[in-house]
Structure formats: structure tokens, C-alpha cells
């Protein structure tokens, strides 16, 4: 049974230059204990999709559709009710730990804060739990480290602290937004390993632009482009048999896969192309692709693609 199910989700927000159509009619299911990778490039709307699940979007945003978590529509909850979900049921691990950690609070206290809020522990117990969490993310000498400030932590350590904070209240689901961005190769490897370990009994939506990282961690992968899901399959199938031309192009442009570029650039979410959103950059595009909009269809068992080649 799916823990989270998103149906017909549309997220748009107005700006001076026009309406940004960040999420366009997305359907997505995440099963209990599934780790789903959401892959996409800058400006494809993947972060907005993640944020809309716990409703961390500006008030001017218009959201349509349903996001059902354990059967309840999160979009219908009051502000007070959603706050109980955030952190406790669904936790978010944000990118850029440098700005996501408060520089004037000790790391341990920041984690304890979240624990106090949701679990009703007193200060001392919360702090003890925080140290325990730092140990869980393999920060050596956790008792001492808990009393240090973020600037005393290295980039990798901060990311570990962010993960500890996300896990602190033992949430059922985690949304991780580019937790490996900007990390060095060796540190990234460690963080990936850690993420993999700590989420074995969890449901996770793992948002990233890094296919290699997603491959390490995720069971299934879905590829997002211009506010839409272009492909969905298990991790092995995405790599062995990518169906959508965008997925193929994306894979081929990796340095390890030959560095063959996709022509052109991602469209603006304000001014989306007609027909298939990818047609201006697609080598296989024909007249139909320019005018008609393809649906996401199940091509093989549990392998979906949004392309007329398979229609």
C-alpha cells in the first residue's frame, strides 16, 4: 500500500514575469519503505514538488489536486494540523546545510529543539536524544560535538547534523532535497552510504540532479522535466533501459557515459513549449510531438514513459 499518493497535482505561482508552472498534473505513489529518486535539472520544479508535500510554499501559490498521506489529504489540513505532520511524520532534509543550520545555536540544541517540539521530552532528555542522533549519523565524539556551533563543523559534518535533525523525531517519511550538493567526492560517498543505512526502514523521496547518487540509494527513480514526470521505473531499468529520449540524453551527457550533450536548454516554467515539453531538444521529435501532449503510459510492467514512441 502506498504511504503517500499524489494525484493530479498542479502547483503554480504568480510572479512579475508571469505564472510559473512548476508542477503540472503530476501523479505519483510512494509505497511504504520505498526510496524513490526524483531526478531533474535546475528549474524543472522538483524542489517545488517536494516542498508542496509539506506545504512549505509561499501563500500566493495555487495548488490543485490531492496529496494523500496515510489516506488524509495534506492539502486540506489546517496550518496547525500540518505542523504536526512536519518533522514528526514527514521530515525534510534540506540542501545547503550552511544556511539551514542556525549559526548562533549549538548543533545539539538545534536538534533537541525539534525533539522537544514533537515528543514532549524535557530539555535534558531531548539533549540526550540529540546526542544519540548525532551518534547515529556517525559523528565521532558526539557528546562534545553537540555543544559546538555549526561553523565548527565541516561541510560533511553539517550535512550529517542535518540528517540527524531530520531523523530526530523518527518520521515515517523523509524528503531529502539534494543532500549531497556541493560536497566533495569522498565526503559525498560517505553521506550516500549514511543515507542508505539510516533509511532502510523508512520511506524517502530523494530529490537530486545526481543520477549516480540516486542509483546508490533509491529503489525506484522518476525523471522530471519542465514540471512533468517523463519516466518512472525501478533503478536498474532506468539505467539499463532508459525509454524517454530525455532520460537517454541525460544519461549520455554524464562524463562517465561519453559526455554527449542534449542540444538546447531547459524551457522556462513560465513559457512552456507546446505538445511534448521536450520536443524542442529531442532528436526524435516529429509533427505530432510539436502539437500533441503525450501521456505517461506503462510501457513495460512498472516502467512508465511519456513519449509517443511507445504509444
Amino acid at each position: 500500500m502506498s504511504l503517500l499518493s499524489i494525484t493530479q497535482l498542479k502547483v503554480h505561482f504568480p510572479t512579475q514575469d508571469g505564472i510559473v508552472k512548476a508542477v503540472n498534473t503530476i501523479d505519483l505513489e510512494i509505497a511504504n519503505n520505498e526510496r524513490l529518486g526524483l531526478i531533474g535539472e535546475t528549474g524543472c520544479g522538483k524542489t517545488v514538488l517536494g516542498m508542496s508535500i509539506i506545504r512549505l510554499l509561499p501563500p500566493s501559490t495555487t495548488i490543485e489536486g490531492e496529496i494523500r498521506y496515510k489516506g488524509n489529504d495534506l492539502l486540506k489540513l489546517t496550518e496547525k494540523e500540518i505542523r504536526k505532520i512536519r518533522g514528526k511524520e514527514i521530515a525534510m532534509i534540506l540542501q545547503n546545510p550552511t544556511t539551514s543550520l542556525n549559526p548562533v545555536l549549538k548543533v545539539g540544541d538545534q536538534i533537541a529543539e525539534a525533539i522537544k517540539l514533537h515528543q514532549g521530552l524535557d530539555r535534558r532528555a531531548a539533549k540526550a536524544k540529540a546526542v544519540e542522533m548525532l551518534e547515529a549519523v556517525k559523528i565521532p565524539d558526539a557528546t562534545k560535538r553537540a555543544n559546538e556551533y555549526p561553523h565548527q563543523f565541516s561541510g560533511g559534518m553539517k550535512e550529517r547534523a542535518m540528517i540527524a535533525m531530520g531523523l530526530a523525531c523518527d518520521p515515517a517519511m523523509i524528503i531529502a532535497d539534494e543532500p549531497t550538493k556541493g560536497l566533495d567526492v569522498t565526503v559525498k560517498k560517505q553521506i550516500v552510504k549514511l543515507m542508505k543505512e539510516v533509511t532502510t526502514q523508512k520511506t524517502m523521496l530523494f530529490i537530486t540532479h545526481d543520477l549516480g547518487v540516486a542509483a546508490e540509494i533509491c529503489d525506484n527513480i522518476t525523471v522530471m522535466y519542465a514540471g512533468e514526470l517523463m519516466e518512472y521505473a525501478n533503478t536498474e531499468a532506468i539505467f539499463k533501459n532508459p525509454m524517454h529520449p530525455y532520460t537517454q540524453g541525460f544519461l549520455n551527457s554524464l562524463p562517465s557515459m561519453g559526455l554527449k550533450a542534449i542540444k538546447g536548454m531547459s524551457p522556462s516554467l513560465i513559457d512552456l513549449p507546446s505538445g511534448c515539453r521536450f520536443h524542442p531538444r529531442c532528436d526524435f521529435a516529429d509533427a505530432k510531438c510539436r502539437t500533441e501532449h503525450p501521456e505517461l503510459i506503462e510501457v513495460e510492467k512498472s516502467h512508465y514513459a511519456r513519449c509517443f514512441q511507445y504509444a
Binding site: E41, H209, P255, L259, A261, I262, K263, S266
Partner: peptide
């Protein structure tokens, strides 16, 4: 830069 753009620039 994004991966697909990185490939363009490097090439």
C-alpha cells in the same frame, strides 16, 4: 551547471 549543459560546454 546542469549535467546536460555541462556536456555542451565541455565539448
Amino acid at each position: 551547471l546542469d549535467v546536460s549543459i555541462q556536456a555542451q560546454i565541455l565539448n
